[in-house]
Design a protein around this nucleic acid. Structure first.
Lengths: 349, 349
DNA sequence: TTGTATGCGTTATCAA
DNA sequence: TTGATAACGCATACAA
């Protein structure tokens, strides 16, 4: 009976070990115990060791919410992305995660499903102190995002990567999209393409626009008449894209496809299989992509490969500059990373 | 001078709007304001509306750390995975995220890089109240994980998916790996393979063992002698796997490859390209995978496809049963989802 | 070097 | 229906 009570008691104790109980166990005050977990405080090495040992024994961890309420910072960054089950974004998050871990920060993940309202809600919500900063690839280019100017300022540092809002002045990491798509288009032209379709998911997104401009300018350089029917607005749904791409292939009979995201290159491949079109004979395909197995596709896919992991890492670095930097830098910081063209069989003559 | 102080003051105010200031603005008490943000409390509809309007105007959000310190729960779940830039895990996380969002929970991501010590550290750390529960795919099968039995219990609910520790009694979501690999091996045999190599990343992992047993039993059924040189222990590094796989192909000359994870199938493809081996003529390949573009590979890859998103979703569901369930269920809950065999050209006669 | 006391921003209990 | 007050667990200024 006594044993039972004892067990019950210790279980309860186990259930919630806190600084007070730990202090009692050690016959010390809470403040002394607290000091043991901070680096720069005055505490006898001996005492500190005793405390840490006991803490480990009892599995004590300073309560995160109490600490952060006190210190007004969370050592947490939030990542907001349009989608998760996506090569590019998972690599970028991987890059962020690595840097965050080095800095002993934790990461929260938020997925907007390309829904601008969710993005707004997430950001608004995050102003409750849950995160010290945000790294985001934007979802709602077409919308009014002035709310970010109010919120996004010094209160909660924000860094963009890849998909940015041009009108919001925050640090950002992008790739040299204009050059890359110019070169991509040029490559198709030099391989003999004359009717090049540009597939894009959301052409109002700045990233879509930049890439499109490279395409347009390359056409111009080679005196190929621009025809806006060849700018094809696609969606995020496999089924819809299948219909859209097949229509384009049948109606416009392009001899080159420039896909602004890898998903659209896949849609093109599937469509060609179904329509018995042969890549690269009937149609050459090039795509922005960070797919590591592009060489294994049938045919191997010519890609403009973005350094996705690096992009994430740099974005994290920019955020930590804001969070931990001594001096406030007032100019916009923009990091431009280079994509690289890998020529493979999908664009071979 | 006064102006400066005033500006400074308002800036500070803007910087940190809290319940007290909001209450002062409204000439109400903190408690009344607090009530406006809870559902079931007594408060005049009129007052509540006034409060919420003002809160929106001032961009007030109840401080997360204070709330959670008070309520002793965080509405946050932690996900621990071996790696992130990986098709399977990013799909699984996507599944978890969807369910978590439905429940209004946030997610923290931790990546172990297959390092058991990191896993232990993460879990230990998470006992500081930062998360209400953990969903994990394990990294350290070979190690002693009894620490989990102490920690993992009621204090911080834990759910496994995919890679589990058999000796830890917590809910789990797995796939029918034994059956699937039996069928996969059988499929290779029926396609005429006689020397089938099984590629595995960590054969001491239970998931590797289960899959291996299916392979072994299928061989036995068809009276093919088991030779443990055909069990090939690979790594997580591209370079190392390239060497390992090529050696196997050259030395053992298998006519079938069964890859326990998709990365090893890719390594096999690359090796075959280099060694001028033709799939499926010289070598048939089948792989566990959740790759959506398996049909686009050259040749299209026969897969045992795991419902990765679903696995994540179910794991989240199990965790929410623990977190929100009224009754404590004492038996182990195990959810088994079925993988599906998709026969494609890599195993065609 | 250690202890005491206060407050971080909430929510819950109780009283009004 | 609302207000005053005490905790939640911790970190720090100050006292000893």
């Amino acid at each position: 009976m006594l044993l039972e009570i004892y067990l019950c008691f210790t279980e309860l104790q186990m259930d919630r070990i806190n600084i007070k109980k730990l202090a009692e166990e050690l016959n010390l005050s809470k403040s002394t115990v607290s000091r043991a977990f901070r680096d720069n405080d005055d505490i006898k090495a001996d005492t500190k060791a005793r405390i840490l040992a006991k803490a480990k024994e009892l599995n004590y961890q300073p309560n995160h919410y109490a600490s952060n309420l006190r210190e007004q910072k969370s050592r947490t960054i939030a990542i907001i992305v349009p989608e998760l089950a996506n090569n590019y974004f998972s690599q970028a998050i991987h890059g962020i995660e690595r840097i965050a871990r080095e800095h002993n920060y934790h990461i929260l993940i938020y997925v907007t499903d390309d829904d601008y309202q969710k993005e707004v809600d997430f950001i608004r919500h995050l102003h409750n102190g849950r995160a010290d900063g945000i790294i985001m690839s934007a979802s709602g280019e077409a919308n009014n995002h002035s709310y970010l100017n109010k919120l996004g300022g010094k209160r909660l540092p924000l860094v963009f990567f890849d998909r940015v809002y041009e009108d919001i002045d925050v640090p950002r990491v992008v790739t040299n999209d204009y050059d890359s798509s110019f070169k991509a288009t040029e490559h198709l032209i030099l391989q003999g393409c004359e009717k090049i379709a540009y597939l894009v998911v959301n052409k109002s997104l700045s990233i879509g626009k930049t890439r499109m401009q490279g395409y347009i300018d390359a056409l111009e350089k080679y005196r190929i008449k621009f025809d806006d029917r060849y700018i094809v607005d696609c969606s995020n749904s496999y089924e819809e894209n299948d219909v859209i791409v097949k229509e384009v292939l049948k109606d416009l009979k392009p001899d080159g496809i420039f896909a602004s995201v890898e998903r659209l290159a896949f849609a093109t491949y599937y469509a060609c299989y179904d329509l018995k079109l042969e890549i690269p004979k009937d149609l050459k395909v090039i795509s922005f992509s960070s797919l590591e197995i592009a060489p294994l596709l049938n045919p191997s896919l010519t890609t403009i490969t973005q350094p996705a992991t690096d992009i994430g890492g740099q974005a994290a670095q920019l955020l930590f500059n804001l969070l931990e930097g001594e001096q406030v830098v007032s100019t916009i910081q923009e990091v431009v990373l280079k994509s690289k063209l890998f020529i493979r069989n999908s664009t071979n003559k």
